[in-house]
């Protein structure tokens, strides 16, 4: 619900946004995503049913729906300009890759642009099934036997799409399809960076798969670096 609301907001905002040409240089927004409270502990994943994957791990792979770092930082938060940015005239020609290795999605959260090419590859010796549960975009559900060419797809509307493998129920990931070239995913230390922002007033949105979205306004008036931090409230269950 929250998801589609934010997407609608993005769309509406973008419709009325002034057309500004993105120029190299410009301002930068950096920040850190943290949490307060007690998050749920990551749980170990038992891959017993797929020995070819299980044997790749000496310690079990942990769930990734809440990944924290030291200093209460939060990884896999998508931060992007949801309003105020110019309409992107075209998607970048480079493709993004979503890999399946060791019965695990890499990266866990993959952000890319509307109409940008998405390549899904299978580095495992077993068949995978990629089923992004799109609600706004067209839903597809395809299997990928080992050794077959990458699956190539595109999404034409912004949406946060939960991705699952029907064959291996523990495999879960996200596609963050955004309508801007100004986006980042927070890293292991919770940090993100949005460079090359032309002067303007922007709405910055941070999205986390378990903790929802937060927004804040940021104004860039030249070649400057602004800081914007987000703090989410963690839930123990």
């Amino acid at each position: 619900m929250q998801l589609s609301k934010s997407c609608t907001a993005t769309l509406t905002a973008l419709t009325f946004a002034a057309i500004v040409t993105a120029a190299p240089g410009g301002g930068t927004v950096t920040g850190k995503v943290t949490y307060t409270g007690t998050p749920a502990k990551p749980k170990p994943i038992d891959m017993a049913k797929e020995p070819s994957c299980a044997k790749q791990y000496t310690t079990p792979l942990m769930t990734e729906n809440v990944v924290t770092g030291s200093g209460n930082t939060l990884e896999y938060v998508v931060v992007y300009i949801s309003a105020g940015a110019p309409d992107e005239s075209s998607a970048p020609s480079t493709a993004v890759t979503f890999d399946q290795k060791g019965c695990h999605y890499t990266p866990h959260v993959l952000a890319f642009q509307v109409n940008q090419e998405l390549k899904v590859t299978n580095s495992d010796q077993t068949s995978h099934n990629i089923h992004p549960l799109a609600k706004i975009n067209r839903e597809w559900n395809k299997s990928q036997p080992p050794g077959t060419p990458p699956i190539s797809e595109k999404y034409d509307k912004p949406e946060f799409i939960s991705v699952k493998c029907n064959i291996h129920p523990w495999m879960h990931g996200w596609f963050a399809v955004v309508k801007t070239s100004h986006y980042a995913v927070s890293d292991g230390s919770g940090e993100f960076k949005l460079p090359n922002l032309p002067p303007g007033k922007y709405t910055l949105t941070a999205w986390h798969e378990s903790y929802g979205t937060q927004t804040q306004e940021v104004t860039i008036s030249g070649n400057e670096t602004k800081s914007a931090n987000f703090v989410f409230t963690a839930k123990p269950y």
Binding site: T63, S162, K164, P169, W170, H172, S210
Partner: peptide, 14 residues
């Protein structure tokens, strides 16, 4: 039920 979080049965420990 939340399989990404290993909640296969749909438990509500909260």
């Amino acid at each position: 039920i939340d399989e990404g979080n290993q909640n296969f049965f749909g438990l509500d420990p909260a």
